[in-house]
Amino acid sequence: MSDCLLEGKNVTKHYDEGRIQALRGVDLAVNASEFVAITGPSGSGKSTLLQLLGGLDQPTSGEILFRGHSLANSFDLDSYRSRRVGFVFQAFHLLPTLRALENVQIPMFETKLGLREREAKAAELLREVGLEHRLQQYPNQLSAGERQRTAIARSLANDPEILLADEPTGNLDSENSAKIMALLTGIQAKRNMVLVIVTHESAIAQLAQRTIHIRDGRISS
């Protein structure tokens, strides 16, 4: 039986009525528990690929498969994003009106967890990322590194099988970048989950088990 968890088959993505071709027939497979880095220059299509893998968007043609099932046909994409995938963004995207503890609970509203269970789990996740002393802080009271840790805790809220990170260290200094990468790789190993990171930093890509390089919408290596 194949160990392939996530697969892209001849994936293309066009924008602006075909004038922009972000992806041109990409094939890739990501196995369970694998750490994959997607690299490439700006505008090469790497973030678009990550969005398609995460069910944020649908390919123009081709298909994305999760455990062999096409995301286009067999899946409720909201449920897929909520239960199977965790997202970490370069700009953190924490809700400014909510405390760290509250931000982490956001994805849990799509589960059957009660209020106290949500709070307990969010506190546990923030402990896991080393922010047990910052539960009640608002995003603007956190450092950039702490914000990204909060976002990572949020991405783990519903125990996803796949963690997708789009330039997770793009807004951080080198010291914080190293800490965040240590945290992400530690979580990936501990939880035995798929980690796909989009980056253009070779130092980060080297941490991955496998690197996929994209250029002009095509996988070049």
Partner: peptide
Amino acid sequence: TKEIGVLRALGWRRSR
């Protein structure tokens, strides 16, 4: 708009 995008990305359904 962006925050709503985040909520949707995190799995919130349209109805929520």
